[in-house]
Amino acid sequence: MSVKTSIMFMGSIREYRGSYIMKKNRVKVAYQGLIGSYSYEAAINFFPDSDYVSFQSFDRATEAVQSGDAQYVILPVENTSAGRVMEVHSILSESELHIVGEYLLPVNHCLFVSKAAISKDSSNLDKEDLEEILNKIVYVKSHPQALAQCKGFIKEFLPKAVAYPTYDTAGAVREVSSEKSEKYAAIGSHLNQETYNVVKLIDNIQDVKNNVTRFLILAKQPLDVSLIGKDAITTIKFETNHAPGSLVDALKIFQRHKIDLIKLETFMSGENKQIPCFYVDILASLHSQTMSDALNEFGQVVDKYSILGSYPIDPKRGDNNGFLK
């Protein structure tokens, strides 16, 4: 994703920042992971020329916005091949932040080894050299999501390797960069080659070539109605009385109003994760008359609901990436 495309998509977010963005002041963006992680890549694409603050966990990154130490947090919520990031769904339902945007990041995984582990000139490796290096790899490190997205590649090309999960893709690459043994490799973003002392052996090793991760941008305040536009998503969390047909009755309301639902998930919430809730993405602005009419009916058939956010869609939706538009 080019910076130019990201800036085009950022139009409403730029206006939402208000007068200080016109003065070219920088905003502070929280993300999970290290420099070189995919969350970092999404942050610099969506918020170019800003200040980026790294946190080890999604919770800590979110708390930075709640405390006022950052204006935004960018969180990965789902991937086209590995599915949803469950920890983030819990944060969405329990934090008091609002979703103000989404960003679809094409994810192209690369395989890295330490420069110190390669005896030959890394800039001039032939096919035989590469096969020899791959056959010596015993441990391949990365975030569980990245390992899952490259499961087929690992099985076929790293037959001796054991997947070793870490909390962050960039953290895995950093760990491997200090290794002198040829037994270790890591999977991560191409950005890591610029940051750590590693050699990129192969790129685009993900099993699904059109591999995309969806990120959500959260802030303390909801996006102003004037900035949302016609092409929007409204995300709702709700609970029903769990009687037979109660979920169907709730969802049919949107059908009657000709409003498209593009995502429906179930997750557990509450202090002990004992309350089943539903999470739905609706292809409509919260402030449209049709949506307003539908929600008036919706509130009468569900036990309770809350609006997590209403925000512009990423224009890359519908580009054969599994994200509906």
Results as ranks from 00 to 15, higher is better:
M1V: 12
T5I: 11
I7T: 15
F9H: 11
R14M: 12
E15R: 15
E15A: 09
Y16F: 14
R17Y: 09
G18D: 04
S19V: 14
Y20C: 10
I21H: 08
N25A: 04
R26Y: 04
V27C: 12
V27D: 12
K28P: 01
A30E: 07
Q32S: 12
L34I: 03
S37Y: 08
Y38C: 07
S39M: 00
Y40V: 05
A43P: 08
N45W: 02
P48I: 08
D49F: 13
S50C: 12
D51K: 10
Y52R: 03
Y52V: 10
F55E: 06
F58A: 07
D59P: 00
V65H: 01
V65T: 00
V65W: 00
A70E: 09
Y72F: 15
Y72H: 09
L75R: 08
P76H: 04
P76E: 08
V77P: 02
V77A: 05
V77L: 12
A82R: 07
S90C: 05
E96F: 05
V100G: 04
H109R: 07
C110R: 04
I118V: 15
S122G: 03
S123K: 15
L125C: 11
D129Y: 14
E131S: 10
I137K: 03
V138F: 11
H143S: 10
A146F: 07
L147R: 08
C150L: 01
I154E: 02
L158R: 04
L158I: 15
P159A: 00
Y164T: 15
Y167W: 07
D168N: 10
D168T: 08
A172D: 09
V173D: 05
V176F: 00
S177V: 13
E182C: 06
E182A: 14
A186N: 08
G188K: 03
H190E: 05
H190L: 09
L191C: 06
T195M: 12
Y196D: 15
N204Y: 02
Q206Y: 00
K209A: 03
N210L: 13
A219E: 10
P222H: 03
V225Y: 06
D231M: 10
A232W: 00
I236T: 00
E239Q: 14
E239I: 14
N241L: 14
A243C: 08
G245W: 03
L247F: 06
I253M: 09
F254L: 06
F254D: 03
K258V: 12
K258H: 11
D260L: 12
L264H: 02
E265F: 06
T266G: 11
S269P: 11
G270L: 02
E271C: 02
S285P: 12
S285C: 04
L286P: 04
H287G: 03
H287Q: 09
H287M: 07
S288W: 13
Q289I: 13
E297T: 11
F298H: 09
Q300E: 15
D314H: 14
K316I: 11
K316A: 07
N320C: 04
G322T: 11
